[in-house]
Write a protein that binds this DNA or RNA. Sequence first.
DNA 1: CCGAACGTCTCC
DNA 2: GGAGACGTTCGG
Length: 342
Amino acid sequence: MANMSSSVCMETPHAHGHAHGHTHNYNPTPGRDFPLQIDSCVNPVLDYSTQMERYRSFATFYKNSTATAAPFPQTAKITRIATPLFPSARLSAMPPWPCDNAMLWGRKPSAVNVNGPHTHRTGMSRAEPVNMHMSGKHIPQDSALSMGADNFLSPLAAEQCRGLPVTGADCMNRLKCSPSVPPGEADRGGTFGGMPPLGGLSLPPGVIVMTTLHSGAGSSGVTMSDSAFQIANVAADCQHSGSSCSGSPAGLNGNTNGSCSSASSNGSGAAKRKRKRCGVCAPCRRLINCGVCSSCRNRKTGHQICKFRKCEELKKKPGSTMEVGFSHTLTHMPGGLLKWAV
DNA sequence: CCGAACGTCTCC
DNA sequence: GGAGACGTTCGG
């Protein structure tokens, strides 16, 4: 299943629930059980509220479960907590764009190494729009329901985008509205302005269309999706930084910190430096803490991020990440496409 | 200064 | 290997 369909939400939550045997509490809402989840994207607030409600039901379930005589197995907890949150992402909790994106974007954009210290960009980093009006310090993660609609990366179509006032989050939408944005401006915004809309489907920022050179061997489609995000960010980074990393996936290491320095993970003295969240993996995009994992429960003493928000890259040992096996080449193609040559 | 979170160590 | 604790780093 190594295709990119997950990026455009071609699957209904309804079908998902039936096709895979496991049950969750997804109740298709009239008007939402649409062949394309684009429908739910048009009404992100409704979606978000629904999912938050479900999330809380899981928390309640957990409490009740632990209160009873039979302990709730950790694996079962994880399955129950993580899976229903992303009904469309049965693999590795990777939410398809853009449907679940609303509640998944990370907390502190500045702590994400997507763009690192490069501040000369006139636009904003991929995660920034979500938190534009959300200090994070003052909005408890578990009260994310208080987020306004502008905290969603509303995947409006180009026509819907046009004419809207451009607030923090809307800025990213505007970037996706290539017809009204000069290519140069879009590029400065941190995404691929030259990227044409895909048959009316607006792609999430950072998602690129890759040509078929990647066989998918050794990587699932989900991984490909994640890679796409990372590739895009690296490319954007190099684009605005003018550095010489030329989209080299070595920069995909969680250590990049927006730079293409080679001293990040070589086991020398610099290896002691803290790595940063990649900002693009599913856990990084998750917005809320689960509240029930050990990290959440031991927030005060543990000093650890929620397990479901722990960056996939940071879980790996430094140096064991993607610099190995990434001898590929990113090639800019006409029309803003990128070719992922192996 | 403070909160968040990564790294590392210890314990089980 | 996971949990927990704590030192440390980082950003606001």
